[in-house]
Design a protein around this nucleic acid. Structure first.
Lengths: 191, 191
DNA sequence: TACTATTTAGAACGTTTGTTCCAAAATATT
DNA sequence: AATATTTTGGAACAAACGTTCTAAATAGTA
């Protein structure tokens, strides 16, 4: 029998993912990936396929992890508290790491021209909106938000606002600014 | 004396701008630009400088035109009506052309790594927010929005929501979906 | 009409791109 | 210890990249 892989494919993929996350798809070269992943060209092609295929795997990995993190952040004793904590957790992660959402970056760089990318992001987006919708439906049943509000629409509104928060952060690089906007959003949901 | 330019530099730049708008900076090659602008390589370099310089001019041109369009869309007999019409006009332009905001695309593709790009977009962003702020201040004085609302914060919130609307449109490609979100935003502003 | 400054078209430049290939190194089993 | 199988590092590839350069075409002036 032959050798086994000397590296952990998942671990090295995360290095690639972080690089794509930071630089974007087109600005990241194969040479960059070889350096950052600490792998040989051949090993990369053998393990992940070509650059585009590797990117899709990174994006899928990111999307799955992000959804998990959203659900983890949904702590609290009441549905609306869970929604609030999810929003605050996104803001916290953004200002702590200085990085915005890879899926959103990818939306604006690639989703209009790359069907595979669009599909991955859109599914992830729907998952997140669905999760919000469930929480908001619960919140309405408990009477935390008024009965005349549409949970689906509100869920989409919150998700769309994340993107607005990220853009604001990229331009302002101002932690407090983003926190203020998030609090404003939370206030709007509750009333 | 010598020849004069046979083409209109501004008109050709707009062709380049539309291409960058559609494909993004990195995915647009100099060869693409030569074809689309209908100009010789030498003429491009001579008139606009290198690719990056041409891009900055396109982005600046776009930003100025966008601000002008925003102000033009601010029609109405009352301040809040002007704000509402600005929002509706953005949605209309988006679903009619199928294109989102070039500056927002650029924000997520380049603004984190390119200082010149960041500067152009940030200034344009501030101009738009300032314009909203003025209208909302007027609206508050007239009593169209409640006195406890901060015009500046509300202005930033609306501007951030544009980005959310664009992202929603890219993913859903659903005119009605975006219009619903816009109406929801307008409702939130008024209450 | 001759002259001259400038634009024009496209060849050519050296890099960098993504990808493939191959010989050498390595390891789990026999 | 020998064998078999796979990984590994790096050379090699053609194509595409952004940019520069040159020679011919052009048009305003004298």
């Amino acid at each position: 029998m032959a050798r086994k892989k000397e590296f952990d494919p998942e671990e090295r993929m995360e290095k690639a993912r972080d690089l794509f996350w930071q630089k974007g798809y087109n600005a990241t070269s194969m040479e960059d990936l070889v350096q950052t992943m600490g792998l040989n060209r051949g090993s990369i092609y053998d393990t992940y396929g070509d650059k585009h295929s590797l990117y899709l795997q990174c994006l899928g990995n990111y999307a799955a992890e992000k959804l998990r993190e959203h659900k983890e952040a949904a702590m609290g004793t009441s549905p609306i508290e869970k929604v609030e904590n999810m929003i605050l957790s996104v803001v916290e992660a953004t200002v702590n790491t200085g990085k915005c959402c890879m899926a959103v970056n990818s939306t604006f760089e690639l989703a209009t021209v790359d069907q595979s990318v669009h599909s991955i992001i859109n599914n992830n987006w729907k998952d997140i909106v669905n999760f919000f919708e469930q929480l908001l439906t619960d919140a309405r049943e408990v009477g935390e938000i008024s009965a005349d509000k549409d949970p689906r629409l509100l869920a989409e509104f919150i998700a769309a606002n994340f993107t607005g928060l990220w853009q604001t952060y990229i331009l302002s690089r101002d932690k407090k600014q983003v926190e203020k906007l998030a609090q404003f959003l939370i206030g709007m949901i509750k009333n």
